[in-house]
Amino acid sequence: MRDIAFGQFYPGHSLLHKLDPRAKIILLVAFIVLVFCTANYAALAVVVASVIGVILLSKVPLRLYFKSLKMIIFIVLITSALNLFYGTGEPLWEFWVFKITLAGINNAVFVGARIISLILISSALTFTTSPNDLTDALERLMKPLNVFHVKVHEIAMMMTIALRFVPLLLEETDKIMSAQKSRGADMESGSLIQRIKALIPVLIPLFVSAFRRAYELAVAMECRCYQGGEGRTRMKSLKLSYRDYVSSAVVVVLIVGVVLCNVLLPHTVR
């Protein structure tokens, strides 16, 4: 339960760790768009090569990337498999209602490669950025939304608190499960409905505890003079450095590369 790899911060001092989190989020968004713009193998190669580059730059053990892939590989395989049979054109191979075409193979490869690239690149972001920096950056990036009366500070505070309490509640779930198992609760066998029923002795104490924690935390925050976002300062200020400009430039080059590949070479997929 505790080794959920996706979205876990891996402390380090690589170039990626040092980038401004705001820059990283914007670059991630740009990259996601880029991934979906790939229309032929040359463009895909550019994307895959840059994903590999990012992974190497992050200096995070490959094992962790594999772990985050492992959670999602089923979805990748299923979507790829579905795409395999949905190609149009001359069938290369046929059996009963199934037929595989060249376009189908292409589709499958592109869908698979795109999803995998997306997961790896977002993992690179979460591995190299502490959850705090991430919420902090989101709060600052979303600040303009204040104009539309979006409670940006409150949302960010909620995320901060959620991040703080997720490990705690996971640990607590573990503990409550052990306690109920010690009273003979059976959580491993039975039908689906029986198993859902078996969760009640875990969920109720968990909710009670979460509410109690929430109440106590609210008291503690008030004792520490919390009064919302107004008049609040921050200890750490984010500053863009040359690294952020250089990486942005690199991403721009990538975009140009993909666009050129798309324009100059024939499209393999729609």
Partner: peptide
């Protein structure tokens, strides 16, 4: 456990002073 707000020690310690606009 129920009085620490942030997921990094120093950021939690900064929470109070941040609230009063230092």
């Amino acid at each position: 456990d129920n009085q620490l707000v942030a997921s990094v020690v120093e950021e939690d310690v900064a929470f109070g002073p941040e609230n009063i606009g230092i």
